[in-house]
Computed example of a mutant assay.
Amino acid sequence: MDFFNHYLKEEISTGILLMLVILMRIIVSKLVRKYAKTSQIIERRTNLVIKYIHILITILALITLILIWGVQAKDIFITLSSIATVIGVAMFAQWSILSNISSGIILFFSFPFKIGDIILIHDKDFLEEGEIEDIGAFHVTLRSKEGEVIIYPNNLFFQKGISIMKKPSINDNEFTD
């Protein structure tokens, strides 16, 4: 019983933090869904962005919780910098994965094109034209006029020129020249 009385301030702060985290997750989810609805973004992409934001909120809440329970900020920063260094070295070869995820989030909010648009990718000597079938966390799936499926990494959309050739109309099911 002495434990509960001794750490009453930390317990109350932890309860308030948990309520704030739940409230923030609900508010952020509603705001992102509202934005997605007005921008006509598909549900799967919306859920993916919400998941990333929830992970960020959870990480920030864990750091705050550690501070509430008396761990020194200096110790947290030393630990986090050590972990970041190890992860950075271990994942150096995997930078493209993080780049594609970041690009996918930027594509979600800037949304220059959507599923059903016909785009032309200016990739040096090779022009890729296709209809967008899916926009995922890591890549965009295109289908060429010949029916070929083209998978294009998200981060390359920020490195290559893109022309939106045709926005689909309600009656369009096929490409037209």
Score class of each variant (00 low, 15 high):
6 H>S: 14
6 H>Y: 13
6 H>T: 14
7 Y>T: 11
7 Y>N: 12
7 Y>Q: 07
7 Y>P: 01
7 Y>V: 12
7 Y>C: 09
8 L>M: 12
8 L>S: 15
8 L>A: 14
8 L>Y: 10
9 K>R: 11
9 K>W: 09
9 K>M: 13
10 E>G: 07
10 E>H: 09
10 E>W: 04
10 E>R: 03
10 E>C: 08
11 E>T: 10
11 E>N: 11
11 E>I: 15
11 E>Q: 08
11 E>V: 15
12 I>V: 15
12 I>H: 05
13 S>C: 09
13 S>E: 13
13 S>K: 03
13 S>W: 08
13 S>R: 03
13 S>L: 15
13 S>Q: 11
14 T>E: 02
14 T>C: 08
14 T>L: 12
15 G>K: 05
15 G>N: 07
15 G>A: 10
15 G>C: 06
15 G>V: 07
16 I>D: 03
16 I>A: 10
16 I>C: 03
17 L>W: 05
17 L>Y: 06
17 L>I: 07
17 L>A: 06
18 L>D: 05
18 L>P: 00
18 L>C: 13
19 M>S: 12
19 M>T: 07
19 M>I: 14
20 L>R: 01
20 L>W: 07
20 L>E: 06
21 V>Q: 03
21 V>R: 01
21 V>Y: 00
21 V>W: 00
21 V>L: 15
21 V>E: 04
22 I>K: 06
22 I>G: 14
22 I>W: 12
22 I>R: 04
22 I>Q: 05
22 I>V: 14
23 L>F: 14
23 L>H: 02
23 L>A: 15
23 L>S: 14
24 M>S: 09
24 M>D: 01
24 M>F: 11
24 M>N: 04
24 M>T: 06
24 M>V: 07
25 R>N: 13
25 R>C: 14
25 R>I: 08
25 R>A: 12
25 R>G: 12
25 R>V: 07
26 I>R: 03
26 I>L: 13
26 I>V: 15
26 I>S: 05
27 I>Q: 02
27 I>S: 07
27 I>C: 07
28 V>E: 00
28 V>H: 00
28 V>I: 12
28 V>W: 00
29 S>L: 05
29 S>W: 01
29 S>P: 00
29 S>A: 15
29 S>C: 10
29 S>G: 15
29 S>V: 01
29 S>D: 05
30 K>D: 06
31 L>I: 12
31 L>V: 09
31 L>M: 13
32 V>D: 01
32 V>I: 15
32 V>K: 01
32 V>G: 00
33 R>E: 08
33 R>A: 06
33 R>T: 09
33 R>M: 08
33 R>Q: 09
33 R>C: 03
34 K>A: 12
34 K>P: 00
35 Y>H: 08
35 Y>M: 06
35 Y>Q: 02
35 Y>F: 15
35 Y>T: 02
36 A>S: 13
36 A>Y: 00
37 K>Y: 08
37 K>L: 09
37 K>D: 07
38 T>R: 11
38 T>M: 06
38 T>L: 04
38 T>S: 13
38 T>V: 11
38 T>Y: 03
39 S>N: 14
39 S>V: 01
39 S>Y: 03
